[in-house]
């Protein structure tokens, strides 16, 4: 009994020591997270969205006024619709193009070319968005842009990429794909590398062709990665900001304005922090709900059991 007690005490002491060390190592990250992420989120959801606040003067409680104002604002519908358009266009394109590129590079390319393609596809993801966006505004220019130059050479008319309400979202989507497809590509590449070769060998012995292998082995075994890419791309597309901000500033008119850009404008151009917080809360709720739906649906198609 005494021995047991001593053992327990010793174990507890070691445990406490380890736990303290763990928390000490974690504390900078935890404090930073709480101060700059969790704290502001709680503050926004519980307090700021119900106030009038312009940074300088003290906050003033206004109840639900900010939410009512958002629903009364005539352009709200356009902004939400635009964001939805980005989601509808960007999520499938990122998921499909990323997957095709990953399969192409891992299965169809060999040797040094593989390294070249991996680097070339992922490279735009690590470049500062602001710097490449400037270059793309020149590429997209109607009168002297390189893209229109080639279109003209092919006999097509110049496209007013960034200065037409019809073309602003496609232009931003093309840029976004070029800039960010490297991230899902990388996830897929890792996912594909983790699929055991024995599955493919068995399929080959059974006489499966490439298409059958792709749909019966690669896709099911890659489904956790696909689900992860869909979820993160969806959240990213709902919060899309940099691309319209840098390429079109939400224009022409409101044609490419998104919810995140609208939040920025209200907070940092009109100094309406409370109003901006209310919009952020609504965006947060929408993303949360849709992500929960995705998580509940994934049980039906995501396969975690292949080991």
């Amino acid at each position: 009994m005494t021995n047991n007690k001593n053992l327990k005490l010793k174990y507890t002491k070691n445990n406490v020591k380890d736990t303290i060390s763990a928390y000490l190592f974690l504390s900078p990250a935890i404090i930073t997270f709480v101060l700059f992420v969790a704290g502001p989120v709680v503050l926004t959801v519980c307090y700021l969205c119900f106030t009038k606040y312009n940074i300088i003067t003290p906050t003033e409680f206004v109840g639900l006024d900010n939410f009512i104002k958002l629903f009364d604002y005539p352009v709200t519908g356009t902004i939400f619709k635009n964001t939805l358009k980005y989601v509808v266009v960007l999520v499938p394109l990122h998921v499909i193009i990323g997957l095709l590129l990953a399969i192409g590079v891992s299965k169809e390319v060999s040797g040094r070319l593989k390294y070249f393609f991996r680097t070339a596809i992922y490279f735009p993801s690590v470049v500062t968005t602001a710097s490449v966006a400037i270059a793309w505004t020149y590429l997209y220019n109607k009168d002297f842009g390189v893209i229109n130059y080639f279109l003209n050479r092919l006999g097509a008319d110049s496209i007013p990429w960034l200065i037409s309400t019809k073309w602003s979202i496609p232009a931003i989507a093309i840029f976004s794909i070029w800039k960010f497809v490297g991230t899902p590509f990388l996830y897929y590449l890792i996912g594909i590398q983790n699929i055991p070769d024995s599955f493919y060998e068995a399929a080959t012995i059974d006489g499966a062709n490439k298409l059958q292998t792709f749909f019966k082995i690669t896709i099911p075994l890659l489904s956790p990665t696909i689900f992860f890419v869909i979820t993160t791309t969806f959240i990213g597309a709902m919060q899309i900001f940099e691309e319209p901000f840098l390429l079109t500033n939400g224009g022409p008119g409101d044609s490419s304005r998104t919810i995140a850009l609208f939040i920025y404008e209200k907070a940092f151009k009109s100094y309406q922090m409370g109003y901006a917080s209310a919009i952020a809360v609504i965006l947060f709720i929408i993303i949360l709900l849709l992500t929960l739906i995705q998580f509940s649906l994934q049980k039906k198609w995501v396969n975690y059991d292949y080991e």
Binding site: I30, I31, L48
Partner: peptide, 17 residues
């Protein structure tokens, strides 16, 4: 510690002048 950090975050944007 967490509560203190949240309070500090609140204080940053609070009503104090």
């Amino acid at each position: 510690i967490l509560v203190l950090a949240v309070v500090l975050a609140f204080a940053g944007c609070g009503g104090s002048s």
